[in-house]
Design a protein around this nucleic acid. Structure first.
Lengths: 204, 204, 204, 204
DNA sequence: TATGAATGAGCTTTCATTCAT
DNA sequence: AATGAATGAAAGCTCATTCAT
């Protein structure tokens, strides 16, 4: 029942990579946190690089797979957006440090990871673009929406959470997802009372 | 006319720090890019850390100062939000790699920088929170808006730009700012025509 | 039975520091003398500075402690002087290069050592001054003796030994101590037979 | 009238070598103290090593020459010892930092200096040994005096002064010389009143 | 006379990695 | 399953020295 030593090493590595960054974390740091000597780690892992891979692999696979399902599903686009954002936040809830490591260090370690990790941020962004394009096509979203920029905007909003998310914070991942979804769909402006009076409406 | 050697070194360092990360960039890398030997750099700088400081100092000072002005100014909140976002994007336009280095590496290098750099992301976020709170108080923004989370959302959107911004890209910083502003204010949903008049609604 | 590697490193460092000076001795020199690579030393020590500390710590502690005992003891001052000098010479016998390093490099490395080494040459000299003052007070030493200068003189005599002492030399530390003691107590002049009685003066 | 720039450089170097040690003193330190840039020093000197040579050359020549004269002169040995010690102290008075540099750094820099500086501590000690041997032979000094060890003792006493001498101190070099001379000749013990009268002797 | 800029060798230190036990 | 010891490459930094101007 207790997690295997290997799992423990990966978990500890995820936490330390998140706290100090991949390069600033030494194998000695990790070994000490696990309670062994750095040389002993090599009984479980082949290299520091592999450890990074083990840290990020599963969470990002899950994220991509679920987003693909959502995009492919039949549902109003607003619903799908809500689901996609919830999916994103749930990742933080479940795999916090891992996903943070992925988000932070991927650009600089791409060359090290890309042989073993196929899911790139680029692809994730394409899925979002597709989702938004569905909404524009169906008329649910604004005609003039620049879907690519909108995808970048939403991704930024959601990814940046890795900087301030606190697994033990006041707001749950679901609550954050709900607030974000509403912001994305409706914006922050107070809706102007419906037009009825008409007339002067055209003047901004 | 040509920039001083020191400025060149700082510019090169900014670029390389952005490309490979602060820790992964060696002084030898920087020296080679400038066309000298690593030891020679120390004629211009005192340490790698100081170089980091020189890279980020000015841009972030500008950003904070301008945002403070905007928040303190008299104008509709929607206008101020637009200005703040434009301010943010203009930074990318003017100091791209520098600001990217700041956004990426600050959390892990805080302890190195905080003696010399007072402006923290935390403070920047507080300014945004204040700005949004002004809008809620004045009735321009939704009553139920969680201003703190909204600030995080907007910041995420704007900061994340450092990951994909291309100074030579199709969209200018101002254009991105305009698209972001609209998204934040109104969201992505197609506005439903005011209900009462009904009738023609179905026609897109 | 063989001394631990750490002890060997400290011993080798003491010898090389003595031969070439602390600053002129490189960790590569030390590592080579021990039969390893310079990086490997860091498995045993934290820094070159710590190595210096390990070299000098014990010997000087012993020296101070023993001198304090002697000064505090009850015995004729001439005896105590003899003991103090013997103590001093015995240090050379037992910890030759270590004590030489301390005597030679302390003034310039004080700032590095003083956090961890409390015993200063100044304090040692004060103990000697006290000892001589005891002798003046008791009438065993000359009334007009400048005890401070005399302490400096004795210390100079004894410390300078680090420059020419040879652990395998003809004279043992005890023999040197005895010769020094006699010089200090009685000087080098041939004692003039007490003048008054005259007569028998010629007979030594 | 004003000392030439070269003389100023040598004087400054002597002071800094004394304060921080030869190796720890950088040419930049020296240049800054003189008010120029380090590269500019090379207009006056050929190398750091030569600077060391310039610092110590004259003082030690004077010391050796004068000691040779004293040893060769006709006078009671006690007088000659007094003169030799006064000579030694006068050096501190006239060339304080220079002589301190020589005394401190010579052993480790011998190989660098010995091509240009012929006067070695060894030779100086031989002169002293000769002087003492003259006294033993003439019966002025104790028959059983170990002249070599006594020479070492006297040299230690006199050389060590470089560690505490203060050109602006209370005691002049001549006064220190007088105190040292008396110590060396007669020791520190209170002379016992000539034996015959006896009786009250035991009561201090 | 002196500067400013650069060199290059060498320093202390770090760290992922190896491997016999 | 883990240790202890060592490696070796590379990092940041220092500094005596050079030289065109």
């Amino acid at each position: 029942m207790s997690p295997s030593k290997e799992q423990e090493i990966v978990a500890v590595a995820a936490r330390l990579f998140k706290e100090k960054g991949y390069r600033a974390t030494t194998l000695e740091d990790i070994a000490a946190a696990v309670g062994m000597l750095k040389g002993s780690l090599y009984y479980y892992i082949r290299s520091k690089e592999e450890l990074l891979y083990l840290v990020v692999r599963d969470p990002i696979r899950q994220a991509y797979t679920r987003l693909e399902e959502i995009v492919a599903s039949q549902a109003p686009v607003a619903t799908k957006i809500a689901q996609a954002i919830t999916n994103h936040m749930t990742l933080f809830h479940r795999h916090y440090p891992h996903i943070a490591v992925y988000l932070h260090d991927f650009p600089h370690l791409m060359h090290k990871l890309q042989q073993s990790v196929r899911e790139t941020p680029k692809q994730y962004q394409r899925l979002w673009t597709t989702l938004l394009a569905q909404g524009v096509a169906s008329g649910e979203l604004r005609r003039d929406l620049d879907v690519k920029i909108a995808a970048y905007a939403i991704l930024g909003m959601c990814n940046w959470v890795y900087r301030w998310y606190d697994p033990r914070g006041k707001l749950s991942a679901e609550e954050i997802a709900a607030l974000f979804t509403r912001m994305i769909l409706e914006g922050v402006l107070r809706p102007r009372p419906a037009s009825p009076p008409a007339a002067s409406e055209a003047v901004p």
